[in-house]
Design a binder for these strands. Structure first.
Length: 280
DNA sequence: GCCAACGTTGGC
DNA sequence: GCCAACGTTGGC
């Protein structure tokens, strides 16, 4: 079968988490060429990585920064696996910290292919996704109505919090076109804010009340034993995020939360690993 | 099993 | 720095 397509997020700005800087920009990526995508400790992201195969295409995304967006193209490689020669490189390998007999965490290596000639900002994608199909921003009219549809269904715009996402082939093609042709101006990218604001709807139901103290602590929080990745050298990226596929958003709406799909562990979301956010 | 509180992501 | 979104926890 033909290669699948994915989107993987990395943070281009420095941010210290658990004593380590999680920074991994497109410049870093281009310079190292291949990096093990370690540290992911979110079940859904892990499951997606388990599906990856050598040669699958990857959109390298800049997250949690001034101008988030797609910065480069890459592919699943797995060349950095330590025992590469002794292992079948056609599928993901387990994280070095996991129990090899009963692997919990899987990961892949990702190799840089090329930079996006024109960085594709999230704001542009949002703008496109918010436009009616027959009202595509003039500058990017070349993606056509189908292109708009493809952007509209991207997990990147429909969900957000997920560091490893599936990307449809058509969507990959559209992103490729945008990156190669560019054409949008600041104005096109700028207005997204207002529009984006318009979408909150689900929010109402929540209406959070003021947080009263009360909650004791959850115990769990720190148990994760094995933490961390070893390789310091490896720049890595992200991790985290949510689960399950997007497809049914419908269900997502009122859903209760399911905890990951996978069996076993996982539950560990409490794993503070990278999760802690250094607030400014 | 529901739901309020809480923690975290991550765009802005 | 702010805050919307949303997963998770845990009392009930």
């Amino acid at each position: 079968m033909s290669p699948k397509h994915w989107l993987m997020k990395a943070e281009p700005d420095s941010r210290i988490v658990k004593g380590k800087d999680v920074k991994f920009s497109v410049d870093d990526f281009e310079s190292v060429k291949t990096t093990p995508w370690e540290g992911v400790r979110n079940a859904e992201a892990r499951n997606l990585m388990k599906e990856m195969k050598l040669g699958d295409k990857v959109l390298f995304y800049h997250s949690n920064c001034k101008v988030p967006g797609i910065a480069a193209f890459a592919e699943v490689s797995m060349e950095a696996y330590p025992d590469y020669t002794a292992w079948d490189p056609s599928h993901p390998y387990h994280d070095q910290k996991t129990d090899k007999e009963n692997p919990k965490w899987y990961m892949v290596d990702v190799t840089f292919i090329s930079r996006a000639t024109h960085f594709v900002p999230l704001a542009l994608l949002r703008n496109i996704s918010l436009a009616s199909e027959d009202d595509v921003p003039e500058e990017v009219a070349y993606i056509g109505e189908d292109g708009v549809k493809a952007i509209k269904q991207m997990a990147l715009v429909t969900r957000g919090r997920l560091s490893v996402q599936r990307v449809e082939e058509k969507t990959w093609d559209v992103i490729l076109q945008l990156a190669e042709k560019g054409g949008w101006d600041a104005k096109t990218v700028a207005s997204s804010k207002a529009k984006a604001k318009a979408k909150p709807a689900a929010a109402a139901k929540k209406a959070r009340k003021p947080r009263v103290s009360a909650r004791k602590s959850k115990k769990a929080r720190d148990e994760d034993e094995d933490e961390d990745e070893d390789a310091e050298d490896a720049p890595s990226e992200e991790d985290e995020e949510d689960q399950t596929a997007t497809k049914n958003d419908a269900k997502r709406r009122g859903q209760k939360r399911k905890a990951e799909d996978d069996h076993e562990e996982t539950a560990g979301s409490s794993n503070p690993r990278r999760s802690t956010r250094a607030r400014k």
